[in-house]
């Protein structure tokens, strides 16, 4: 297990180095001059030159690339072109909101998704099964923007159960609708996947054997069937982490929440390269780590994987 852990962890390093290179190339070749955007619609060339110099945009590309690698490894990602806040501070101030949303949505998606999926599989072709399938289909098909808007109209304006969008003074109630909105899609996916893999597993010989041994149905399902049925579900959870990171951009926009998604959208619009690079690197790191965790957990759920 240790060798497997080391092998997988070392595999992350070239990925990170590659991500840094890709982020740099993307932000270099994209058209649009950040200094120019900062100046507004009209600007005097003299000041523009001064600003470009300060941003380091007048240096040759290879010099900028070497400097970028150095900056990343010394965690000196610079300051936003737009408002002069350090990149680290910009990310730090937005991270709690995005993390709350993503973790909350994932907990809801996994807990409800797996539970409903198991229930559906063990009650195949009942009305509860059909109902959960219809809802999960709707969940997958509904865009985040649509779900968010409908939720605000129903729960904030019509029923008045939640105060509205934004963060208020940080009260938990403000997170309820965004977390539900963000969690709906991954939950629906997990419901469907858990149901289908469970159905596959419960028809396998070892499950029949477990039943033939006279084990209680609960023990058959939770002890024998579930562990094997969860492997594809774990894969989906890993992949959904990436999808959540893009989902937060929309959720944060609809609910006016100050998170990393909003920060990155604004940074792209304004060609705020230090922020774009910082956020993309951070998200890539989260994504790589999430996948690493998923990979490592395979080893736990399926010992055969460790010895490959």
């Amino acid at each position: 297990m240790f060798a497997y852990f080391i092998r997988r962890t070392l595999g992350v390093i070239p990925v990170i180095l590659g991500v840094i290179l890709v982020v740099f190339i993307l932000t270099t070749i994209v058209p649009g001059d950040p200094a120019r955007i900062m100046m507004g619609q009209r600007g005097d060339p003299e000041t523009l030159k001064l600003i470009r110099k300060e941003m380091g945009l007048d240096e040759p590309t290879h010099v900028q690339l070497v400097k970028f690698y150095k900056d990343v490894f010394t965690l000196n990602l610079g300051r936003s072109y737009r408002n002069n806040m350090t990149v680290i501070e910009s990310i730090k101030s937005r991270l709690p909101v995005t993390a709350t949303l993503a973790i909350g949505a994932m907990i809801i998606a996994v807990v409800l998704g797996v539970s409903i999926g198991i229930y559906s599989a063990t009650h195949q072709y009942t009305w509860q099964d059909y109902l959960s399938m219809i809802f999960s289909l709707l969940g997958i098909a509904s865009p985040v923007y649509f779900v968010g808007l409908i939720m605000v109209i129903i729960f904030a304006r019509k029923l008045g159960w939640v105060p509205g969008t934004g963060l208020g003074n940080g009260e938990w109630i403000y997170y309820v609708l965004p977390i539900l909105t963000l969690g709906v899609r991954p939950m629906a996916l997990i419901v469907r996947l858990t149901r289908s893999t469970m159905l596959e597993v419960v028809h396998q010989d070892y499950v029949k054997t477990a039943r033939a041994k006279g084990l209680k149905e609960k023990a058959v399902i939770y002890k024998h069937a579930l562990k094997n049925a969860l492997i594809p579900v774990i894969t989906i959870i890993g992949l959904q982490t990436a999808s959540l990171l893009s989902g937060v951009m929309l959720t944060e926009t609809i609910y006016s929440l100050p998170g990393l998604g909003r920060l990155s959208i604004q940074a792209v619009t304004n060609r705020d390269f230090p922020i774009i690079r910082g956020v993309v690197l951070f998200m890539a790191l989260v994504f790589v780590l999430a996948n690493l965790l998923v990979d490592l957990s395979y080893g736990f759920f399926d010992p055969r994987i460790r010895y490959e």
Binding site: P31, G32, P34, R36, I37, Q41, T269
Partner: peptide
Amino acid sequence: LDWGSHLD
């Protein structure tokens, strides 16, 4: 085009 590229 996005604003920055357009202006450019």
